[in-house]
Simulated scan of single mutants.
Amino acid sequence: MLRPFLEETAAIVESEIDRLLGDPAQQAAPRLAEAMRYAALGGGKRLRAALVRAVAQALARGAADPPWETTAAAVELLHAYSLVHDDLPAMDDAQLRRGRPACHRAFDEATAILAGDALQAAAFGWIAGDPYLSADARVSLLAGLAEAAGLAGMCGGQMLDLEGERQPPDLAGLERMEQLKTGAMIAFAAEAGAIVADASPTERQRVLAWARHLGLAFQITDDLLDVEGDGTLTGKDAGLDAARGKTTFVTLIGVDAARARLSELARSAEAEVRQLAGDTSLLDALFHHVVTRDR
């Protein structure tokens, strides 16, 4: 059930991103447009897009799917920007992303910085211009995306991550940092699905609670893959966190305790999703997929 859903979602979102980014030859700065397409297209788990779609479908009130496609593409675009900047020499100094050279390696550092900036701006523009959403929905999505991506979310978490290289955090601090750096955008993706489905405030809060458990589980699984994963499957540099001396769940509490924490998060997530009306089987399958993936 899940694999066809993920593959179909990825294909739809890939097509939507391709359409909205357009032909580089028609843009004011073709090389920058090419770098944006390089970073945003051609692979990736598309987990955030799948979350938007799965939640929207689970909470839909009518027979027709809510208009999730452009919102999902925008979320993936902002995620792509974050990866471009995260890979830069001043940040993680990564060589690979999605099995091919990182954007700054394929182009150059300055172009990668500008590509990330332009991808971020485009993500907001796509949501603002979606003709299939109400004005209230677009405002809610834009406000939520700004919070999840900024100081109170992903960027704030990245800053805490950098500071953690000098002053390693304890477990509570590590969880807080990851809830911001990784979890905030995952939680927003799920909430975005609820917004486009016109869900009630109570439903949105339950979705958010479920997605926060998912976001932390995603990062713990990433930490496990960094030490146990196969680089040919993950498509990125293995052991990069250890090489930079970063504190991870594995380095702080060990593999066994990290896996035990995953089990706790799965139980908490299941308790939240059981309170939602409608068919939530895809949400259960997505959580299982996140904690058992090999890439």
Rank of each mutant, 00 (worst) to 15 (best):
A25E: 13
T247C: 14
D256M: 08
E178I: 09
R98D: 11
L160C: 09
A194W: 02
E272R: 08
L214M: 14
A146Q: 08
A187Q: 12
I12E: 15
L88N: 11
K246C: 07
D87I: 10
G229F: 10
D284L: 14
P131F: 06
L286Y: 03
A50D: 04
D170T: 11
E7W: 03
L47P: 01
G278E: 03
A197P: 03
A243W: 06
Y38D: 04
I220A: 02
L133D: 02
Q275C: 10
E264L: 15
G62I: 01
G231S: 14
A121F: 06
Q179K: 13
T234G: 10
I220P: 01
R53S: 03
C103M: 11
L51Y: 09
D161H: 07
L133M: 11
V273E: 03
R37C: 12
G215A: 09
L32V: 12
A11K: 13
R295W: 09
A118F: 02
T248C: 07
T234Q: 10
P30V: 04
L276M: 12
A135R: 15
M159D: 06
L59S: 06
L141V: 05
A112C: 11
V139N: 04
T232H: 13
H85C: 05
K236D: 07
A40H: 02
A54Q: 04
G229C: 10
R100H: 08
A49H: 01
D294F: 02
V250P: 03
V84E: 08
L160R: 14
L78G: 00
T71H: 02
L262H: 05
L252P: 06
V13Y: 01
E7P: 02
L119N: 04
A266I: 05
A266F: 10
G183M: 06
A271V: 10
M36C: 12
A271N: 09
M36N: 03
A122Y: 05
A74V: 08
R97K: 11
D136G: 12
A58T: 15
I113Y: 12
P101Q: 12
H104Q: 13
A80K: 04
A56T: 04
G144N: 03
A172Y: 07
H289P: 01
L21Y: 02
G164L: 10
S82G: 10
R46Y: 08
A49I: 04
V255G: 07
M1V: 13
A80E: 05
A29E: 14
R53F: 08
V291K: 01
T234C: 12
A122W: 01
E270P: 03
L47T: 05
E16T: 12
T221W: 00
A243N: 08
T247N: 03
A123M: 05
L162Y: 06
R105F: 07
P101A: 09
D130F: 08
D237N: 14
D226M: 01
E8Q: 15
A35F: 06
L160P: 05
A192C: 07
V255T: 15
V273D: 00
R267V: 15
A39H: 08
E272S: 05
P101L: 08
A187Y: 00
R293Y: 09
S15V: 00
G215T: 08
G173K: 03
T251N: 09
G129F: 04
R138S: 06
S15K: 13
A39W: 10
E178A: 05
V273G: 00
V139A: 14
A199L: 07
A74T: 05
L160A: 14
D108N: 15
M1L: 11
A33I: 02
I195N: 00
Q95G: 12
D256P: 01
A73F: 00
V290F: 01
P101F: 10
